[in-house]
Design a protein around this nucleic acid. Structure first.
Lengths: 107, 107
DNA sequence: TATTATAATCGTAATATTGCAATATTAAAT
DNA sequence: ATTTAATATTGCAATATTACGATTATAATA
C-alpha cells in the first residue's frame, strides 16, 4: 500500500500525472521560471535565489531533469542549465490539450 | 522537516504548485476526464470505471474539490458531480500563461 | 420505519516526498 | 599538485500521500 497503482491507468494519464508532479512543488515552479529568465543560460545562484539548501535545490533540479525539461552539463564547476525547448513544447501541448478537451465536453 | 516551505515562495508559485499537485495523480486525471465526458452530470460508477476502492476514489474527489474544480451536491444517494467551468478556465489560464511566459524568454 | 444503495469518514499500514548536514565529486585556478 | 568554488550524492528525520477495510451518514424507496 502507499504506492500509486500506475498499471491500472493509461500511458497518457500516467504521463500527465508525472509531468504535473514535477510542477507540484513551488520550488520547482520557481526554478523553472528563474532558469527561463536567464539570458545566457547560466544559473549559478539558484540556492540563494530560492532560499533552500543546496542539496535540496539539487534534488529538485533532478526531478525536473527526469522528465527531460532541462538541458546542460551537469558536472563540475559553473553549471549551465537551460530549458529544453522541444520538450517544453511537448509538455505544454499535452497539458493544454487536456484542458481544452475537458472544457468542451462538460455538462 | 518533510513539509514544503510554502512561506518562502510567492502566492502565484504556491497556487500553481497546489493545482499541479491535484493533477499529479493518474486517478485524478482520469476522474476529471471521466466526469467531463458525462453529458448530464451524473457520475455514479467512478469506482468500477477507475478500478480503485470506493474510499480511495472519495479521497481523490476530495482533493479535486479542494481547489474548487468540482460542482455538485456531495451527499446521500445518486451523486451529481460537475466540473466547475469558471474555476476550470481560471486554472487553465494560470497554467497556460506559465508555459507561455517561459517559452518566450528562455535562452 | 426498515431497507437499500450510495458516498463520506475514520483508522491505519505502506510508501513517497521534503529538507538538510555531511561528504564526495568535479574542474578551473593558483 | 593544491586549493577553491561549485554541484552531486548519501543518509536520515519529519511529514505527506496513497490505498483500503470497517464504519458511518445520507436519502430514496419499499
Amino acid at each position: 500500500m502507499g504506492t500509486t497503482k500506475t498499471h491500472i491507468f493509461s500511458n497518457r494519464h500516467n504521463e500527465l500525472a508525472r509531468i504535473a508532479k514535477v510542477m507540484a512543488h513551488p520550488a520547482r515552479v520557481a526554478i523553472l521560471e528563474y532558469i527561463s529568465r536567464q539570458e545566457n543560460c547560466i544559473c549559478t545562484d539558484l540556492v540563494e535565489e530560492i532560499g533552500l539548501a543546496q542539496p535540496t535545490i539539487s534534488q529538485h533540479l533532478n526531478e525536473i531533469k527526469k522528465i527531460g525539461l532541462l538541458d546542460g552539463t551537469f558536472e563540475g564547476k559553473n553549471l549551465c542549465y537551460c530549458i529544453n525547448q522541444k520538450r517544453w513544447a511537448e509538455v505544454q501541448n499535452l497539458i493544454s490539450s487536456f484542458f481544452l478537451n475537458i472544457n468542451q465536453n462538460c455538462c
